[in-house]
Design a protein around this nucleic acid. Structure first.
Lengths: 148, 148
DNA sequence: GCCAAAATCACCCGAAAGGATGACGACAGA
DNA sequence: TCTGTCGTCATCCTTTCGGGTGATTTTGGC
């Protein structure tokens, strides 16, 4: 945009020079100041109009582009909810693995604990969620924001 | 925008008039044509610059608004996938109820069939999904777009 | 160091789930 | 009409799950 103003100034200077040169060339002929004034004014007015039109033409419109962003849902583990329900971290660990479709035995191996331990954790988390089955516990866990 | 050009022209006309009036008032004093030319040129140049700046200033920007659209995911039941896997509608019905945390008995009551029938359907769908447990079947079903 | 909560493990029992197999009727398409 | 698929139901058997109870060890905070 600054370039436009600069160009405008330069063109103005050139025009003045041209006009002065023209004036000296026809010095013998007597021209009235009014004519020169009008000429200069007209030229600059035309220039201004042209500039205005140009600026108008290149004017950009408001483009409110509503990009449907993936809305990736970062899923922050809902610690607060977990605490509220009195579910311990370990119990939630087990619940997560249950949600992934693992058996108690597989979970036990993955967590390096006995299957009995896993059963204890799962029983407790079911109790705290009010679930009778693991599928139900998973469903409730997701509804409560405990699981992704 | 056309208003700007109009205003510019009007202001130009007024200025010329003012200048001419000024000239007649100090007619006795001899002013050179160059001074008037320069004066007019300067005034119009300033006006042009002002106009340019104003146009620049009011120029509107592109607003790329990234609206995190709710992304509600309507979930269209993936019939194609179901067919590809050779899973029947009835089997998918059972899978959906399993995903909701229901027991075989509850599903049987809901669908008005025997528990044995539910077990048959579930066994078949597990087989087709390659699942050993219902939690795993649910997980796979969601990954494959069979379930919401 | 003490205490409470958390995590760990064990055993028992009944219910639920899962696997295998067979069967039967309905229905659509060749 | 014959065939294949689908939905239905059953029986037998094994595995997994869930509930209950009790116990020991770890851990974190005071």
């Amino acid at each position: 945009m600054k370039r436009h103003v600069l160009i405008y100034g330069i063109i103005g200077g050139i025009l003045i020079t041209v006009l002065q040169w023209t004036q000296y060339r026809f010095l013998i002929i007597e021209h009235s100041v009014e004519i020169y004034s009008a000429l200069i004014a007209a030229l600059f007015a035309i220039l201004g109009i042209w500039l205005g039109l140009k600026l108008t033409k290149t004017q950009e419109k408001i483009v409110v582009k509503e990009v449907p962003v993936p809305a990736v849902d970062p899923f922050v583990p809902n610690e607060q909810k977990r605490e509220d329900l009195g579910i311990t971290r370990r119990e939630l660990d087990v619940l997560e693995l249950i949600a992934q479709g693992m058996s108690n035995r597989e979970i036990a191996e993955k967590l390096y604990v006995s299957e009995n331990t896993v059963k204890t954790h799962s029983s407790r988390v079911f109790d705290k969620l009010g679930a009778q089955r693991r599928t139900q516990a998973v469903q409730l866990g997701k509804e409560l924001g405990l699981l992704p």
